[in-house]
């Protein structure tokens, strides 16, 4: 349709190629880490995804604050798109983290500060999406969601601090980071390429979700225009009604 479409197709193709290279590097090219074994390869996914899920929290907060201040819908679309992709990436963080934890720490889950914070933030942003679904359409739902988005970001460091303090208070109840790995240059390169691939894929998703929101808003505006046109039809006869009123 418009000139942007080929550009996005190229980006999509580039994403696929980058991801293929990343998979090849992670599973074939990079040597197995000596202490941790094969499972260490999960790290190349887990670390970039975990970083992005934290970034998503910040993006939602930026979109939410700017929306409340400027009242411009595009910032709400941005916050909403960031929250949706953030919940997805957060879920992937929790899953890849568990895959990592099982062989290394011998448990699927541990109440370590980072994990606990990720989990609770994930719940807050699931609540954000539920609120959007259950709140009234239009500006009010967007404003309520923006408040949750801002409060989630404000709460994040407090949650982390509380979870960290709690962990030190209950040392016996946490399976700690056990064996330490060491990083070779191949591992560094693999992590870097994976980071680029995942950031690019995430940004693509974010842009796509944003475009969907924008399209939805355009549809709303069109139906508003439609009601405007029918109202104009009514006011076209206004003059003769006013004339009739003077009879």
């Amino acid at each position: 349709m418009r000139g942007t479409v080929p550009g996005r197709s190229i980006w999509l193709a580039a994403n696929a190629a980058l991801m293929a290279i990343t998979l090849w590097m992670i599973f074939i090219w990079v040597p197995t880490e000596a202490n941790l074994g094969v499972i260490q390869r999960a790290l190349y996914f887990h670390v970039p995804i975990a970083i992005i899920s934290l970034v998503a929290v910040v993006l939602v907060a930026i979109g939410s604050v700017t929306y409340l201040v400027t009242n411009r819908a595009r910032w709400d679309w941005f916050a909403h798109a960031s929250a949706e992709t953030g919940v997805l990436v957060g879920a992937l963080t929790l899953i890849t983290g568990s895959i990592w934890a099982r062989p290394i720490w011998n448990v699927w889950w541990t109440w370590d500060a980072k994990l606990t914070t990720t989990l609770i933030l994930w719940f807050i942003f699931v609540g954000y999406l539920m609120l959007r679904a259950y709140a009234p359409a239009g500006g009010q739902g967007a404003r309520l969601a923006a408040i949750v988005g801002i409060i989630g970001a404000i709460d994040a460091p407090i949650i982390y601090f509380a979870a960290d303090l709690w962990r030190t208070a209950h040392p016996g109840r946490i399976a700690g980071p056990g064996a330490e790995g060491s990083m070779t240059s191949e591992m560094g390169w693999t992590l870097l390429v994976s980071m680029i691939a995942i950031v690019s894929a995430y940004s693509y998703m974010l842009v796509e979700r944003y475009r969907v929101r924008r399209a939805e808003a355009a549809v709303e505006a069109l139906s508003r225009d439609a009601s405007l046109i029918s109202a104009r039809g009514a006011s076209a006869s206004r003059a003769d009604v006013l004339a009739a009123g003077r009879v």
Binding site: S227, S230, A231, A234, S235, R238, V241, A244, G245
Partner: peptide, 23 residues
């Protein structure tokens, strides 16, 4: 008021029920 517009605006004096009802 109709569809978000003011379509008629007159003082009370000189308006009769039948005319206004018709409009």
């Amino acid at each position: 008021l109709a569809r978000g517009h003011i379509v008629f605006d007159q003082p009370r004096t000189g308006l009769d029920s039948a005319t206004l009802r018709d409009i």
